[in-house]
Amino acid sequence: MKKSISLTINGTKVDAEVDQNITLLSFIRDEMGLMGTKEGCGTGDCGACTVIIDGLAVKSCIYLAVEADGKEITTIEGLSIDGELHPIQQAFVEEGAVQCGFCIPGTILSAKALLDENEDPTEEEIKKGIAGNLCRCTGYVRIIKAIKKSAKVLQKAK
């Protein structure tokens, strides 16, 4: 059974006919071709598929595409504007927070949702904010540093 949905992805309005049981992750990757959103487990346990829905970080592998009807979605592709990295992306580059990179889009989006909500988080709040984003490469040390740094940059820009 197909259902029509209409949503905004990275600022662009999208109308689509989707199967009732496909996940938002599958819609984003397979229908929209936005491959920056990754699938690590498909069961809501790793956070690689994290996107932002109406300001909240959500695991798109356990979220139905039809539920996204009328909502505003941000994926990693929506973060850098006009060839400029978003300050969080920039901080990840500068702090050396990236290794294999597979967890990174999801982690950056969790960080963005956190900083949009709480502009000056403590280290503990940062750790909590990305606790659902598993990374096997980095030990998180530099990821945490990068998020701290980007919080400062974003605050200054205000």
Partner: peptide, 23 residues
Amino acid sequence: RSVARNDVIDKVTGRAKYAPDVV
């Protein structure tokens, strides 16, 4: 020198291609 990794921009923008992305 700790130059930035040459794969890092693609990895923070989601452009980096992995085998699961092959279509």
